[in-house]
Write a protein that binds this DNA or RNA. Structure first.
Length: 597
RNA sequence: GGGGGUGUAGCUCAAUUGGUUCAGAGCGCUGCCCUGUCACGGCAGAGGUUGCGGGUUCGAGCCCCGUCACUCCCGCCA
């Protein structure tokens, strides 16, 4: 038997034709005299009918069918009797009357039910253990398909625009800057290791030196860091690099890509060009470099107003060079003491000394601090925060970075609370794309007491800021850009340094990497740049995150066929696992762990 | 490394303050009945070391300690 159609294909137009379908028994409805089977494959469901008056042997065999049996059915397509059409199914106008049934493979009773209309979904641990069953569920199949369509649209887009897809090595060199790497021991080079790439960054820059001009890759990347709902140890990036471009070229290119992808995946037109926001503005208004601009709750500055305040906490912050900012949590005066405590704890965990607040209730400001405010200060607050009955005002007064961080986090928490209480609507299908630009090239890290690259050390400074590199490196802006969507960092990139002297200066003078270390890690790069490296720049988008957003799930595991748990374990294959002593001997590795197997 | 949540039947969950619903419901599963169902229906039935180990108590699914797994967050992710 050879399959003639898939299970989502038959329509009224096929009525009268012979058809052979193959698939899984999705549901069995045995009415005693007549048996209905809903047959499922990747493309959909079709009702097949076993009628003893039509074909007795098939009907008899159909008694033994159970969930998830794999079967082939041969029969003819007929219109369902009047009144029995199922408008919920695309194939619901017709059914297949079976002449011949073949059980290709029986199935044990699945550990969880695969239908999605009935009982609630099984927990994720079980789903991951039996991922091959979980992926049969139509909602997961839908995610796999959407992911494919996005990848296909991206490939076509890049192809149309003159890009070459080039694969880069998975076995790479260890470069301990940045994320922790997965190491791979080399058998033929005892004691030496490869590392799996955190990204193809250095290779794609070498491809530019190689004259590839326009490169892209849908690239696997690896980071041995702790996981999150939106972070897996191995993940996929849409990786892009071009020669002879400016930032403006990059914005237009990526806007075109995302518009293409949204059209392909969701059939939606998204407006381009995307708005742009400077890093400083994002931090001042939203307390985040990836602001969700779908709702307000913006940070409002009161540094000037409280510079002479009698309230010592605010005045002290201003006197020592800090800022005073506030947000109005509209309608949250109903906040409980417990919630205030939680918010205060959150604020403290991000470096605040406390959390000053005002509840506006019953026409008065209820707050332990309001007695310190004079009329002018109250007036400024009322006007700039548009204070009304029922509002809750939260303050941050500290170093400006601390206030950004604290109020930025509180803003998101408050939005969640307001959403739950129905006081704030954040549309899920509104797409607020945003370029965040003009990041500082260099950030001072107080813990290591040295300057670090905000993005990565290959990012080119803004040309007119280069003279500041020696005197005030943190004032230098980088030619870096992030693409943000609804508060999620979709990706980022930069125009790169292509001059060997400037690159060497960044490594050695600014980032204080010892020359011999810079030479051993990046020497080949500095050398390559001496052989006519074109000006170039690139970007990388988080492909899993992109797909998750398009699928409407907050969890990237839902768009990855075989993801790992929060402890980086694959529950289906039980990896990682112990290895044979011989394997370790071959690799010249001795273990130093308790309970080693 | 730290903090929060969860763990009871194959699955999803319930079980008032520790004590007459000390193990229950729906779905699934098994058997029987049923010729137009599509969340089919009806009848009957099987199925439990309440994650694991300890402790407190006259008595623990519930309280305490430890541990394991999953999950969310912080740190981390150039």
């Amino acid at each position: 038997m050879k399959r003639t159609q898939h299970c989502g294909e038959l329509r009224a137009a096929h009525v009268g034709q012979k058809a052979i379908l193959m698939g899984w028994v999705h549901a069995r409805r045995d009415l005693g005299g007549i048996v209905f089977i809903e047959l499922r494959d990747r493309e959909g469901n079709t009702q097949v009918v076993f009628d003893p008056q039509h074909n007795k042997p098939s009907w008899e065999l159909a008694q033994s069918l159970r969930s998830e049996f794999v079967v082939a059915v041969e029969g003819f397509v007929r219109k369902r009797p009047e009144g029995t059409q199922n408008l919920k199914l695309p194939t619901g106008e017709v059914e297949l009357l079976v002449d011949h049934l073949e059980i290709l493979n029986p199935s044990e009773t699945p550990p969880f039910q695969l239908d999605e209309t009935g009982s609630a979904q099984a927990n994720e641990e079980l789903r991951l253990q039996y991922r091959y069953l979980d992926l049969r569920r139509p909602s997961m199949t839908k995610n796999l398909k959407l992911r494919h369509r996005v990848a296909k649209a991206a490939r076509d887009y890049f192809d149309t625009n003159g890009f070459l897809e080039v694969e880069t090595p998975i076995l790479f060199k260890s470069t301990p800057e940045g994320a922790r790497e997965y190491l791979v021991p080399s058998r033929v080079n005892p004691g030496k290791f490869y590392a799996l790439p955190q990204s193809p960054q250095q290779f794609k820059q070498m491809l530019m030196v190689a004259g590839v001009d326009r490169y892209f890759q849908i690239a696997k990347c690896f980071r041995d860091e702790d996981l999150r709902a939106d972070r897996q140890p191995e993940f996929t990036q849409i990786d892009v690099e071009l020669s002879f471009i400016t930032r403006e070229d990059m914005y237009a290119l990526m806007e075109g890509l995302l518009a293409t992808v949204w059209l392909a995946a969701r059939g939606e037109k998204i407006p381009t060009p995307f708005p742009r926001m400077q890093f400083l503005e994002a931090m001042e208004r939203f307390g985040s470099d990836k602001p969700d601009t779908r709702f307000g709750l913006e940070l409002v500055d009161f540094t000037k107003e409280f510079a002479q305040s009698k309230f010592k906490v605010f005045r002290g912050a201003v006197d020592s060079g800090g800022v005073v900012k506030a947000i109005n949590a509209k309608g949250l005066a109903s906040v409980t003491q417990g919630q205030i405590e939680t918010l205060t704890e959150t604020a403290k965990s991000f470096g605040a000394k406390g959390l000053a607040f005002i509840k506006v209730e019953g026409g008065e400001w209820k707050s332990p601090i309001v007695k310190f405010f004079n009329d002018e200060e109250k007036k400024a607050l009322t006007e700039k925060l548009k204070i009304e009955e029922g509002d809750l005002i939260l303050f941050g007064a500290d170093k400006r970075e601390t206030v950004w961080e604290v109020l930025g986090r509180l803003r998101l928490i408050i939005a969640e609370i307001l959403k739950k209480e129905g006081k704030l609507k954040v549309p899920e299908d509104q797409w607020n794309f945003l370029w965040v630009i003009d990041f500082p090239l260099i950030t001072y890290n107080p813990e290591s007491k040295r300057h670090v690259a905000t993005h990565h050390p290959f990012t080119s400074p803004v040309v007119e800021d280069v003279p500041l590199l020696d005197r005030e490196p943190t004032k230098v802006r980088g030619q870096h850009y992030d693409i943000v969507l609804n508060g999620v960092e979709l990706g980022g990139g930069s125009i790169r340094i292509h001059q060997p002297e400037l690159q060497k200066k960044i490594f050695e003078q600014v980032l204080q990497i010892p020359p011999e270390v810079a030479q051993s890690r990046f020497g080949y790069m500095l050398q390559a740049f001496r052989y006519g490296a074109p000006p170039h720049g690139g970007i990388a988008l988080g492909f899993d995150r992109l797909c998750a957003i398009l699928c409407g799930t907050p969890n990237i595991r839902d768009v990855i066929a075989f993801p790992k748990t929060a402890k980086a374990v694959d529950l289906m294959t039980n990896s990682p696992s112990e290895v044979e002593p011989k394997q370790l001997r071959d690799l010249h590795i001795k273990l130093d762990v308790e309970d080693a197997g």
